[in-house]
Design a protein around this nucleic acid. Sequence first.
DNA 1: ACCTGAACACCGTTCAAGT
DNA 2: ACCTGAACACCGTTCAAGT
Lengths: 215, 215
Amino acid sequence: MPTRQTSKPRSRRTAEARPYHHGNLRRVLIDAALQLATEGAEVSVREAARRAAVSPGAPFRHFPNREALMAAVAEEAQRRFRAEIEAALREAPASPLDRFRAYGLAYLRWAMRNPAHFEIISTGRYFAHGSSEELTRDNAELIGLSEQMLADAAAQGLLRPADLKRIQIAGRALVYGFARMNLDGHFPRWSVEASEIERMAEGVIDLFIAGIAKP
Amino acid sequence: MPTRQTSKPRSRRTAEARPYHHGNLRRVLIDAALQLATEGAEVSVREAARRAAVSPGAPFRHFPNREALMAAVAEEAQRRFRAEIEAALREAPASPLDRFRAYGLAYLRWAMRNPAHFEIISTGRYFAHGSSEELTRDNAELIGLSEQMLADAAAQGLLRPADLKRIQIAGRALVYGFARMNLDGHFPRWSVEASEIERMAEGVIDLFIAGIAKP
DNA sequence: ACCTGAACACCGTTCAAGT
DNA sequence: ACCTGAACACCGTTCAAGT
């Protein structure tokens, strides 16, 4: 058994003597909130503070209110979401309809695997979406992407005649609705087993594309 | 000016002398909660109690907890939702695809006009859907209805070859997604004006049906 | 410049006591 | 049988005081 090192004076910054100033609290709070969401718990400022080992008032030095915390969490989640979609598109074939398909698939796969984060991004109950520059910009870019793919498809004569905006809204409603059915626990009542959800996601996207594509 | 009837003794149950026993509290609480939701406010048990002019503990004689109140509210909303869909189907033509269209339209119209009620029915964040017999039954019947219409359409040779379950899930994802985009405030970023939402709902349903129907 | 800790106004829920 | 009112454990948020 090793002797206790009683002679050595405690250094000013050992692990057990946490400094008064956290230094990194903003980041730690966002991670704690992200973690809470992943666990399926309600994100509360107090609980995030508790996990950051900090007093209940401390978060309010970094965020004016709970909404602002949620917005920061959403920005982080959206960044990851967008990164995954862009990665999928980088590996996708050149044909615009194939790219449209890859986009939808990547969207749904991320939503299926990160339901809590997806909800924070999309719900708008936690904070006003318009209040975040970054979220608005990211969103606009993703929308522009799908607009472009559809316009290309139309230009190459791949689509049956139809209003492009209508196709776009329908396509988005389809994937968003599917993601939310999953999130909101609707699939059991539609007899869709957990194990077949990702396959069904693919099937639903293919059905939609078959419906808009020229035969 | 009429003289005050001071001679007449106060009856035991005048309007201003509210009786200790409410008599109708369960109903009144549900209506108050429905009203709160309509106003866009968070439904709280205490506020519902306040509006029913009753103490904060009183609701718990009628509902074991907040979830049970929300479930009762959802049951009421679902009843109205279902009634409207069934009314629309009564007036709809006989052709199964026309009926499918009428169903989708009635679904979306109700969701557009009663967003708060629609959310309580569909979200599953307020209470466990499985806990309500009535909700489960109502839901199953609505699902059965659309199943039947699609089966009829297939039997009459109106559909392009495709898996019926897939069509059903896709159709539901489409309308649910559209309703939620409205609810969650997505339409501004898709440049869909409030005034054109119902027209767009129709367009999106028609696009879907054109996609599954035999040309 | 950033954090603590007490305080305030909320909430859901319980429970003894009243009618 | 049903309701009151005080109580408890939460929550978001503020603010004087500490480092």
